[in-house]
Design a protein around this nucleic acid. Structure first.
Lengths: 168, 168
DNA sequence: AGAAGATAGTTTAGGCTTCAAGTTTTCAAG
DNA sequence: CTTGAAAACTTGAAGCCTAAACTATCTTCT
C-alpha cells in the first residue's frame, strides 16, 4: 500500500503547546480512515454502477421522501449549495432516474422525485453499498464497533459545541 | 444546526442481514463526523488565508522535504492523480509559493520545492490549523482521545486488510 | 545500436463544489 | 394595489478531482 499523507504527518510538526499535537494526530487519523473507506466506495460505485457518491446520496434522499423534495430541501439535507443541487438534478434527470414536477401553490418551486427506473436503480445500488460497508468494517468486534460509535458521537457533539461558541 | 444527511440516514434502510446495519450506522457516523470537521477547516482556510485544503496539504508535503519532491512523489503521498498535482502545482507556482527545478540526471523529471515566501506562508497556516483542530477536538477527554486513536487505527488496519483480500 | 516497454509529466474532457450574481415569484407594508 | 424585501431556483466563473490519451525520456534486451 502507498504511504498515507496523514499517517506520515503524524510524526511531523511538534513545536506546539500542550495537548495540541495529540488533537492533530487524532484528526489526521480520523481523516485518513474516513478517506480510505470513502475512496473505496467511490471506486466501487463507479466500477459497478457507473455512478458517483453524490448521485447516490441524492437518490437516497429522494428514496426516503415519497412526495418528493424541492431542490432547496435537498440542498439543506445534503449540506451542499443550491447550485450544486441544480447540476446534480440536471444530470440525474437526463439519465431518467428522477423527474421534476411543478408545485401548484408556489410557481418558483419544483419537486424532484424518483422515477420507477430511479427507484429500481437505487435499490440495486443501496444493497451493494450496504454490503461493501459491512465487508470493509467487518474486521471490528461488536465491542469495538459500539465503543467507536459512542466516541464518534461524543466527538461530533464536542465539535458542534466548539463551532457554535467560536463561530458566534 | 441543519439536520445532517448521515445522521438521518442512520434511521433508514433496515432490510438487511445480520450486523450489516450496525456497520452502515458506524460508517455514516464516522463520515458525518469527519465531514463536519473538514468543512469547518476548509471554511477557515478560505476565510483567513484565502487558500484551500488541497493547497495546504501540498505545501505540508513540501515542507517536510528539504530537497523538494517530484510531482510523482507528491501524487503518491497525497493519494491523488498526477493530473491533479500538475494543476495544483501550476497555481501554487503562479502564487510564488513553490518553484520548479530541473532534475539533472533525468530530463523527464522536475522537483518542486517551497520558496522562502512559501515557507513563511505555510508556517503561518500550519500554526493556525493546529490551533483550530485543538479547539474543535478540545471537548474530548484524554481518555476518549486515546481510545478513539486506538480504535481508528484498528479500523484502518481492518479496512486495508479487507481491501487487499477482496480487491485481489 | 535499435526496438520495445516502462516511467515522468502534461493535457483534455467531464463531473463535483463553492461563491456570487441574476431571474422569477411570493409576501408584507403602506 | 404597488412597491420593496425575501425566497426559490439557475447561471457563470473558478478550483478540485479523475480517467484516459498523449509526449518525452529512460531502460532493457537483443
Amino acid at each position: 500500500m502507498i504511504p498515507d499523507t496523514h499517517v506520515d504527518a503524524e510524526t511531523a510538526l511538534d513545536h506546539s503547546p500542550a495537548g495540541h499535537k495529540d488533537d492533530l494526530r487524532l484528526w489526521l487519523r480520523m481523516l485518513s480512515c474516513a478517506r480510505l473507506i470513502e475512496a473505496e466506495i467511490r471506486r466501487r460505485l463507479r466500477a459497478r454502477f457507473d455512478t458517483t457518491l453524490p448521485r447516490f446520496d441524492f437518490l437516497a434522499q429522494l428514496e426516503r421522501a415519497a412526495e418528493g423534495l424541492t431542490p432547496g430541501e435537498i440542498s439543506r439535507r445534503m449540506m451542499v449549495t443550491g447550485g450544486n443541487v441544480t447540476g446534480l438534478a440536471a444530470r440525474l434527470e437526463e439519465e431518467g432516474l428522477i423527474e421534476r414536477r411543478a408545485v401548484r401553490e408556489d410557481r418558483r418551486a419544483v419537486t424532484l422525485r424518483l422515477t420507477p427506473q430511479g427507484r429500481r436503480e437505487f435499490a440495486r445500488q443501496t444493497a451493494a453499498h450496504e454490503e461493501w460497508v459491512a465487508e470493509l468494517l467487518g474486521g471490528l468486534s461488536a465491542t469495538d464497533r459500539a465503543a467507536l460509535l459512542r466516541l464518534l458521537d461524543r466527538t461530533r457533539r464536542g465539535v458542534r459545541a466548539a463551532m457554535s461558541e467560536g463561530g458566534a
